[in-house]
Amino acid sequence: MNRSARLVEIVAAHAGREGPLLPLLHEVQAEFGCVDGEAEAQLAHALNLSRAEVHGVVSFYHDFTATADPRPCVQLCRAEACQARGVEALVPAAQAAAGGRVKLHDVYCLGLCSVGPNARVGDQLYARLDQGSLVELIERA
């Protein structure tokens, strides 16, 4: 499915919702890794806002980026359960392994709390990580 058809789908899923702009932007950011000008314009049209208004909101929040990060991305869960199961101790090694080549993105809960520390690459989830397996995961990413 092309991008703009997917966007239409995302918008449709939020139809009728009060104040749909922010949740939509989050979903677009998650899906495409950015909210670019084209997405802004398409959302503006769909929500009956001006392009400028959507751009104003996008540029106000740090969560949204105008261009996608081309680097591979490893999402590492740092929420309570994973913290309790020791994720913080793995962070320095993970950062060293990622360097500038891999984007290490903190997320908060991947829904596998009982088997953490957890990470995700693309759609694939990885559980019970220790330093070795996490570093390997990052190096392969």
Binding site: L49, S50, A52, E53, H55, G56, S59, F60
Partner: peptide, 10 residues
């Protein structure tokens, strides 16, 4: 009523 302008960034 055109909403052509915005405050970009913060």
């Amino acid at each position: 009523g055109t909403f052509a302008l915005t405050m970009d960034g913060r």
